[in-house]
Amino acid sequence: MLQVENLTVYYQTLKGQVRALENASFTLADGEIMGLAGESGCGKTTLGHSLIHLSPPMTHIGGRVLLNGQELPLADMQKMDAYRFNEISIIPQYAMNAMNPIRKIGQMTEELLRAKKADVKTVMAALKDRLEMVKLPQEVLGLYPIELSGGMKQRMVMVLSTLLDPELLIADEITSALDVASQKAVSEMLVEFRDQHCCNSVIFITHDISILYQIADSILIMYAGQLAEKASTETIIHNPRHPYTRLLISALPEIGVRYSDKRLTGIPGKTPLLLNPPQGCRFRERCPLAFEKCAEVPPFVEIEPGHSVACWKEGSADA
């Protein structure tokens, strides 16, 4: 369904390039919900945005992305418009402020659909059912964003973003601002959306790995702009291979603890700055297993079907 090949995206700043996404390659299957986890600032949002909204100061350095076999014109703001919303959509990290504050929500939705040349009538009818799915009253369409609570806004944006049944939905930290009970409800709604074909595949970005146990089919772990490991949720939890993933999982109080508040910070050391990242494996300074070879960038290789790791101690080093 989605194929990402060697995708590299930097932020162009006055001080130089922030190397926020380096050589990312992975695939996403039909209907797969992939959790994308990693510490704050490791490039999750960057990866998400690269797939739909690659705008300055982000610059496309290299690599390509195929959606159902078709290459996306990532860096072409105009050409990408045809894919945005229709094929790929996003619930942004800033969902709380994502709606125009001085338009009624319904009115804004209609204007957006009309501007996108969508079939307004049909979609607005479908909108009613979607609102029900996320337990929002129909009346919200007559309200202004400021009149909704944070959780309601979050769900409203979820409905909005998926109105055109996109192939790929990127959900960026949609649970982070919520209390534990709503976190659970919102993630379940997202699964429901997938099951009802309101969207096909999902990239679920979070810095809170425990929330992924429940909903993700697979998990992709990132560290400092590089992919560390991707595997099925089962494997990541019970049989992680990358030293970073292992530390992450063991840092959680108890495997399988649901919606724990434990964040991905229990590892000694600091994440490197991406303005001038260290050569080679960026986890080197904190890695208990680091050795000379780690001065070179470890390739992200498939060590068994559906399980890829970027570490010299695993995969390529053993091979």
């Binding site: 945005h49 909204h53 942004p92 800033y94 402020n97 125009n100 996108k116 973003s161």
Partner: peptide, 21 residues
């Protein structure tokens, strides 16, 4: 540069709508 503008951009809304808002 406000969030609601970025959101519309991410959804591929035409420039004219974003400017109007």
């Amino acid at each position: 540069e406000a969030d609601y503008s970025h959101y519309l951009e991410a959804l591929g809304a035409p420039r004219s709508l974003i400017r109007r808002y």
